[in-house]
């Protein structure tokens, strides 16, 4: 067994939480190598060498990897990847984009959103928007696993891995990067935040979402949204929590004006404590919430913000 983890790096910046939790999931099976591919690797590779359970960090510094285009990985790294038995990546937009393409190249299935590693060929993953959990056994020679990182803890920074420089020859002639529009935000990242405040359709408009953001900022929290709120244009898609958005498991999740559709619950029900505010006492969100308040959010949320 030889395990490789694809570190998520965007323009030289390591997605530390995602990468560390992916290493942690992979380390269930043994020591791992981590591929650190980006336009600038020095910072990222330094951080990865300190992660426990990492044996080697394969450093590939090339502009080709600045924007994590799938073709850059699949066309140039396939021989490196082929020498491993297990490839792990976070099931973020990074991993979901790249890993199945590698699967297509290797003629191997991808095992998406793995929530538990049972053995070297058996894994658990949610299906049907989290309405069921499947245990699957892979018969592929090379197993490709994307990790639902919220189900795993980070690895401690007690490692002392060796870095090895590697090269790649071919170029990506298929896709070209044009631009990124990444919202600059002082708020913590949604998937790794300790506290998340989310708004749903009940918030009513994009302008009203400021109420949610105000409470979030007071709590030092990340802002989330239900699919209904995103669908209605109240919030950007990268705030979406749920089966088709992000999966979060913070210490505290505050759901405001969210009815609690199953697809939303699939994205947050592993939170430690769930607080729900909704004016409809029948809302399904109250069946999973530890603490509920039946009240008008427009009255309650500003008052809560004031009192905290």
């Amino acid at each position: 067994m030889k395990i490789l983890v694809l570190a998520e790096i965007n323009d030289g910046e390591l997605a530390e939480d995602q990468t560390s939790k992916t290493v942690s999931a992979a380390a269930t099976l043994g020591e791992v190598d981590v591929l650190c591919a980006s336009n600038q690797c020095s910072d990222a590779s330094k951080k990865i060498t300190k992660m426990a359970n990492v044996e080697n960090v394969l450093v590939l510094e090339d502009d080709l990897f600045a924007q994590s285009l799938a073709e850059s990985y699949s066309e140039t790294l396939i021989d490196t990847i082929r020498s491993y038995s297990h490839i792990f990546a976070p099931s973020s937009s990074f991993g979901k984009n790249i890993l199945p393409r590698i699967g297509g190249m290797l003629d191997a299935m991808v095992i998406s959103d793995v929530s538990q590693v049972i053995s070297e060929d058996t894994f658990e993953r949610p299906v049907y928007a989290g309405n069921a959990i499947q245990t699957v056994q892979s018969t592929d020679k090379i197993k490709l696993i994307s990790v639902r990182t919220s189900n795993f803890d980070s690895v401690p920074l007690t490692g002392n891995a060796i870095t090895k420089k590697i090269d790649c020859a071919t170029k990506n002639t298929l896709t070209t990067f044009v631009e990124n529009k990444i919202q600059a935000s002082d708020r913590p990242e949604l998937t790794s935040a300790k506290v998340v405040v989310s708004g749903g359709r009940g918030v009513g408009s994009k302008e009203n979402f400021e109420i949610i953001e105000g409470l979030a900022d007071k709590l030092g929290a990340a802002v989330g949204a239900s699919r209904a709120a995103v669908d209605s244009g109240f919030a950007p898609n990268d705030w979406q929590v749920g089966q088709t958005g992000k999966v979060v498991a913070p210490d505290l999740y505050v759901a405001v004006g969210i009815s609690g559709a199953i697809q939303h619950l699939a994205g947050m029900k592993d939170s430690k404590v769930i607080v729900a505010i909704n004016k409809d006492e029948e809302a399904p969100i109250f069946q999973v919430a530890d603490f509920g308040l039946v009240d008008d959010l427009f009255k309650a949320v500003p008052e809560i913000e004031k009192k905290i």
Binding site: N131, T135, Q137, E281, Q287, G292
Partner: peptide
């Protein structure tokens, strides 16, 4: 390539407390 060994219900959460007021 993937043999489905089992499909089960997800673990469920218990409903908690409905609080009286904002405080």
């Amino acid at each position: 390539r993937l043999k489905v060994l089992e499909t089960k219900e997800p673990g469920s959460r218990e409903a908690g407390l409905i609080l009286e007021n904002i405080d």
